[in-house]
Computed example of a mutant assay.
Amino acid sequence: MSNSTVANRYAVALFELGTEKSNLPQLEEELNTVVQVFKDDQELKAFFENPRVSKDDKKSFIREVFKSFSQETINLLLVLTDKNRVSSLNEIVKSFVNMKNEAKGIAEADVYSVRALSDEEQEQIQNVFAKKLNKDTLRINNIVEKSILGGLKVRIGNQIYDGTVKRKLQRIEQSVVSANK
């Protein structure tokens, strides 16, 4: 079974549990924190990947470190430890967040620009793309990329809307080259 299929199953179970208990936002926040902790701490990652460390030690560690988190988050980490799937946590969280966003009419967008966008500019982008995608809300993650000469590139899921000057110049070049053939 592929890693994404397994991750999706865990995410579905967690989403259903969170929906039932009405704590989806709390779960999302906790899961994002856990992912960040694993990302930032290489020693922690090595601890969980080490086959010499017993599962019981790993589970005790989870119970102690994440004791302020919801029982659902702790249980997920314990099950992942039992099944040697802690490495799937990133994919599980991505699937979970996507399900939660879909249910709430939210889309997430990476917006690449040459400089940080103002609140007003972000709001304009939110309005345009939320309507285009039939979503209630669009969460924007503004990524400053100096290689963009001007304009914007917006990535929502697997769709890319490229309105950068660089891309426009490429289109002009393609049309000039094809016209000269």
Rank of each mutant, 00 (worst) to 15 (best):
S2L: 10
N3Q: 14
A7W: 00
N8H: 10
A11Q: 10
A11P: 11
A11G: 09
F15Y: 08
G18P: 05
G18N: 02
E20Q: 11
E20L: 09
L24C: 02
Q26D: 12
L27T: 05
L27F: 08
E28V: 06
E29W: 04
E30Y: 01
L31E: 01
N32Q: 14
V34F: 00
D41I: 12
Q42L: 13
K45H: 13
A46F: 14
F48N: 03
E49G: 15
K59E: 00
K59Y: 00
K59D: 00
S60H: 12
V65H: 02
K67G: 07
L80G: 00
D82C: 02
D82P: 01
N84V: 06
N90M: 06
E91A: 04
I92C: 02
K94R: 14
V97K: 03
N98P: 06
K100H: 05
E102H: 04
E102P: 02
I106H: 02
A107P: 06
D110C: 08
D110Y: 14
V111R: 05
Y112N: 09
S113F: 04
R115K: 14
S118Y: 10
Q122V: 07
I125D: 05
Q126I: 06
N127P: 06
A130N: 08
K132L: 14
K135D: 03
D136G: 15
T137G: 08
L138F: 02
R139N: 15
N142I: 06
I143S: 12
K146T: 15
K146G: 12
K146L: 13
K146C: 07
G151K: 07
K153Q: 05
I156A: 05
N158Q: 14
N158L: 10
Q159L: 12
I160D: 04
T164F: 04
V165K: 01
V165D: 03
R167M: 11
K168P: 04
L169T: 07
S175A: 14
S178M: 05
K181C: 09
